[in-house]
Design a protein around this nucleic acid. Structure first.
Lengths: 107, 107
DNA sequence: GCCCTTAATCGTCTATCGACGATTAACGAA
DNA sequence: TTCGTTAATCGTCGATAGACGATTAAGGGC
């Protein structure tokens, strides 16, 4: 399962930075969408935050919608499913996961 | 939540490599413990695999127990709880269902 | 004792990440 | 149109990650 592992690794890499986790938490508590307020919240330079947002968007974890001169970011938790699934497989090897009927991942 | 985010980021970083995911899958399907068979399974040099094992062990995801001249590795899924918790936090608020709340995959 | 196996460590190299300032592009308002 | 705001991009830099061969340390078998 090379390609699946690569996808999961990409998702994990997207979460492998405190600043990106902070951004996700910020989007979580913000029901609507915020623009550059993220820059002030994480305390990093605007270009750095933009890069983190780009990584999160590339991984599919967030979505960006143009709203005039600013951009409306929103969470897309569904993209994390492969990673959540993998962790669930490790945590509960004998118990069936709630959603996937059978994910034959092991060779 | 700085320290918590750092801890979660460390866990995610441990999962952010296909070779390490493969190692975890290998340990999952191996009820007992295997030693250097991991080296042959992942197709990397012995020193490289040893480094991946060190990273996984440092993150607490696996444990290594000396068994004579070889080392017995085992999964420690409990260490992934903070990361699983974080992902669950992201996934939960949008839908109470355990999985696939919506299939909106807007890029 | 000696030798063989196993795994960790060391040293080195390349590639990627993370951060920043500066610049550029897009859009709304005056 | 011009101006101000917002976000992406560029270029650069230092730090880290990843891979490898070679070496070293620890045990078991002879």
């Amino acid at each position: 399962m090379q390609d699946t592992d690569i996808e999961i690794a990409e998702l994990a890499k997207a979460l492998a930075h405190p600043a990106r986790l902070r951004i996700l938490r910020l989007l979580l508590v913000t029901p609507g969408c915020i623009g550059g307020d993220i820059v002030g919240a994480v305390g990093l330079a605007q270009s750095t935050v933009s890069e983190h947002l780009r990584i999160l968007k590339a991984a599919g974890v967030i979505t960006g919608e143009i709203s005039g001169p600013r951009i409306c970011y929103a969470l897309n938790p569904a993209a994390l499913e492969p990673l959540a699934d993998f962790i669930g497989t490790l945590t509960a090897p004998s118990a069936a996961v709630c959603c996937v009927p059978d994910e034959k991942e092991i060779s």
